[in-house]
């Protein structure tokens, strides 16, 4: 598959008020394939928004280059195929949700009656209640605004979407609805570049992620690869296990704990110790209840990766 986004050595230095330099994005190299939902992760201030703004030509890179849908960044013809949801959605508050979408539709030169049709489709898709369509946006709740924000991103039926925190600050129902909408974009063959702190969402809907820290790419890969590896958990049961053998087991696998009802739980990352532990359990006439690999959550991966980089 072709690359929807290809970033080479993208760098952005901001000069602060005290003439101090902030390297917001530092020599970033990244490829996003067509048709994937790509999670772009990083702590506050990691440089996610800055990266997106550079790709969209809102700020200019200090160094580096990128292509979007095969065209050089900044090529205005490619904007026809793009969509952007800024991290906090702001609108002209004299307008209704309908008017705002109509306005953005005009910026794409979508003629009537096609434009009204698109506006309707988009508002329906984000499930904004129809009573609110023609109401002034000042009276919208945060969730309703966010829906309009996503709707405006869909007005041109884009190929590539940049969504910066699309699900922050929403109630659980709205949250899962909007997450499903984003997930459904993949089925329509669209590419989504998703910046988010909601790692559970990312784990659910993204195929690949990148983690950046202080502007630098720390890791990138499929969620499957990143969360794999992990640890093995052994659960065993037996009276003798708890009494005499516990210390012995702990010598083999340090993370060994006694639980209620003569149950012992052992967790290790070292596959070589598993056989020894099993032998020891058997020798003490213990029953093995389960041996399961524990998958890491994306959050574990994120915390681990970032902590390691920070040297904590």
């Amino acid at each position: 598959m072709a690359a929807a986004i290809s970033i080479q050595g993208l760098t952005k230095k901001y000069v602060g008020l005290q003439r101090d330099e902030v390297v917001a994005v530092n020599n970033l190299n990244l490829d996003v394939q067509e048709g994937e939902i790509f999670g772009f992760l990083g702590r506050n201030g990691a440089g996610k928004t800055t990266t997106i703004k550079m790709l969209l030509g809102l700020v200019f890179p200090t160094a580096g280059d990128a292509t979007l849908l095969g065209k050089p960044m900044g090529d205005s013809s490619v904007k026809q195929e793009l969509a952007y949801l800024p991290e906090e959605t702001y609108f002209y508050d004299s307008m209704s949700g309908w008017d705002i979408l109509d306005f953005y539709g005009r910026l794409f030169k979508i003629p009537e009656p096609e434009r009204s049709r698109r506006v309707k489709i988009c508002l329906e898709k984000v499930r904004l209640q129809p009573e609110a369509w023609k109401r002034n946006i000042r009276g919208y709740s945060k969730g309703m605004r966010q829906r309009v924000g996503i709707a405006q991103a869909l007005i041109n039926d884009p190929k590539l979407l940049f969504l910066d925190e699309p699900t922050s600050g929403l109630d659980p129902i709205a949250h899962s609805e909007l997450r499903e909408i984003v997930a459904s974009l993949k089925d329509e063959g669209k590419t989504v570049f998703l910046s988010s702190h909601q790692l559970a969402d990312v784990e659910l809907i993204c195929s690949r992620v990148a983690i950046i820290h202080r502007g630098k790419l720390l890791t990138t890969g499929t969620i499957k690869d990143l969360t794999a590896g992990g640890r093995i958990e052994i659960v065993a049961e037996g009276t003798q296990l708890v009494n005499g053998t516990l210390a012995k087991l702990q010598a083999i696998i340090p993370d060994t704990h006694e639980e209620a009802n003569h149950i012992v739980r052992l967790i290790t990352e070292d596959n070589n110790r598993i056989s020894a532990a099993i032998d020891a359990i058997r020798a003490a006439s213990g029953n093995i209840i389960s041996i399961v690999p524990i998958k890491k959550s994306l959050e574990d991966v994120f915390v681990e990766t970032v902590r390691k980089e920070e040297g904590l």
Partner: peptide, 14 residues
């Protein structure tokens, strides 16, 4: 200031 310009300039607007 209201950042409405982000959405406008990311559309095909020169």
């Amino acid at each position: 200031e209201r950042r409405t310009i982000y959405t406008v300039l990311s559309k095909p607007v020169q």
